[in-house]
Nucleic acid binder design. Structure first.
Lengths: 182, 182, 182, 182
DNA sequence: CATGAATGAGTCTTCATTCAT
DNA sequence: GATGAATGAAGACTCATTCAT
């Protein structure tokens, strides 16, 4: 029986593999997670992973590709916003909008940035431009650097949330929002 | 012949192993670096690693322990500073003071945070308190959150430098300093 | 739609599988050719191979059985020849009569002799007897050994052709013929 | 403890691996012999094979390289012979000089020619030239082709011996020698 | 102190084969 | 008849670690 997920047709087991791999990669890291572990966690034969995803890297790529939407849907709301103040506000509170269900995916994103040095800069580029633009409209002297600063903040807050730091993320977002008088 | 480094007595080979492992762990990651690779890079027998450091994890621990000084010496100058404005300024420009030679060590710190979820928060605690204290003296309303925010920015800048991002770190530091009117 | 080949009823796909397997077994060897490779080359599902031929060995057997005719049709012309001189001549030039299309089949024969130690001696027995008989009629002192010798040469020439050796096979055959004054 | 074999320094286990692999490759074929099977037969851990020979192909190469001497020592005696008649005689009886201990090595040579299409033509080139030269000196009209014919004979006889054919190889050699009046 | 041979468990991956559809 | 998802065993190869020398 077929299951339609992420608007791509997949078998249940294929889906299960992806979920298990995402969870394990996010928790233990890509290299520390063996395909055997993934198979056992997904309750499938190890061979099936390779039939569906070619190799371990293909499995990772599939996970990442399916997640692209998550990233885009998070950014599009900010980038499309016409009101510059609102752009900045939304950017600052972006991390708060991350679904708990998607924590694994985001954790994996951060992990890969360091484990495999997979850059996420390109994905954030539209956001940076939207922010830069917003600060410009609001008459800030150094809009680009203001934008960069917000980006740094977002990454820092996201990282703190995902690592389960005891920092109060919501408080920090409000605090920064106040600083920008938004 | 014995060599005294980091104020601990070590043989040349021991030192070489540590350097090789640091470089490889920082570049490829802990799990992706085999002890065999370390041995070859250090031009020693693989067995020697285990004789000196017990096991792979012991090797990592040794690297980290030796690096503690680097962290402390970076922080002590800020924490000891009596002038609150200077504390903030020094914190902001902290990343600029990192020696190129020590890049591998710092990169490893960031990598481990995600690969092995080794927290470095505790080490930064004194810095946070120094900043909090400084902002308090300067009459800021929310000194703790100000401190936290600076920390977030500092970590972001450091991370950008170590990942070789195309962000202009120096410009960002100056920009931050200006924002805080320092 | 059904196709009649080798006077055995087969589906097109069955035929395609056989051809692909023959080609791949001949080129890469039996063990080095996976059923998956065969299926892909034949553009059929892997399962179909097993439905039609039971298992990989059954596939090989089918190929070999279908080829028996090729061997027989090659030999019958020689064995049936009444003129002893002509028997010898035809034997010598046997390899020249192999169709280019059948090269894969013959290559497989030679390969299997070594890879799976499948003997083809029995198949050549009638030829040996025909030659022995011919030499006898022509008054040779040791007809059996003459026959054996010719067989050795024939096999060597065939082998050279199939391996793409740079030996001039045609020249060799003519040379042999001259030696036997035929 | 070290053992000196084939004038190369090797450990006992290394030697054992080589012997086991030679035997198994010769009996079952290269692809049909797993490294696991080799390890078990040699009573060593599978990993040791890779430590010493890099990979499975490296193991094969090592076997082949060590055997080069066997080939050379067999040929040198013929190639160095000044008397042309003796050259031909020695060539014809060459296969008889193969040591029973070396059967595996020679069987492997024949097997590889077909399984991996490893050519042995180059190795036989000096022999071909020696024969060609000998026939020339003896006033034969087509010395090159005469030489080729002997080569074909040698290969055929060798092949028959190694496959355990019921052909009387010695009788055949004497028979051919008589034909050349040697 | 230092080597490097040796190992057993584990890595990713491929295999022939089965079976529900 | 035909597919392709699914499997378990086996494939080549790597790993951290031990130990005799």
């Amino acid at each position: 029986m077929q299951v339609i997920t992420h608007s791509i047709i997949m078998t249940e087991k294929q889906e299960k593999i992806l979920q298990s791999a995402l969870g394990l990669f996010a928790k233990e890291g890509y290299h520390a997670t063996s395909t055997n572990k993934v198979a056992k966690h997904a309750c499938v034969s190890e061979g099936l992973i390779f039939r569906h995803f070619g190799n371990k890297e293909g499995l990772l790529t599939s996970i990442l590709e399916l997640g692209e939407n998550k990233i885009k849907s998070l950014l599009v709301d900010i980038v499309m916003e016409p009101d510059p103040k609102e752009v900045i506000r939304k950017a600052i509170f972006m991390s708060a909008r991350i679904d708990k269900i998607d924590y694994d995916f985001w954790k994996l994103q951060f992990k890969l940035k360091w484990e495999l040095e997979v850059s996420s800069d390109k994905k954030m580029e539209p956001l940076k431009m939207a922010l830069s633009n917003a600060f410009n409209k609001l008459g800030y002297e150094e809009p680009e650097q203001e934008a960069m600063l917000i980006l740094l903040f977002i990454e820092g807050i996201g990282s703190a949330i995902l690592k389960g730091s005891n920092m109060d993320a919501n408080q920090m977002m409000k605090f920064l929002a106040k600083k920008y008088k938004i």
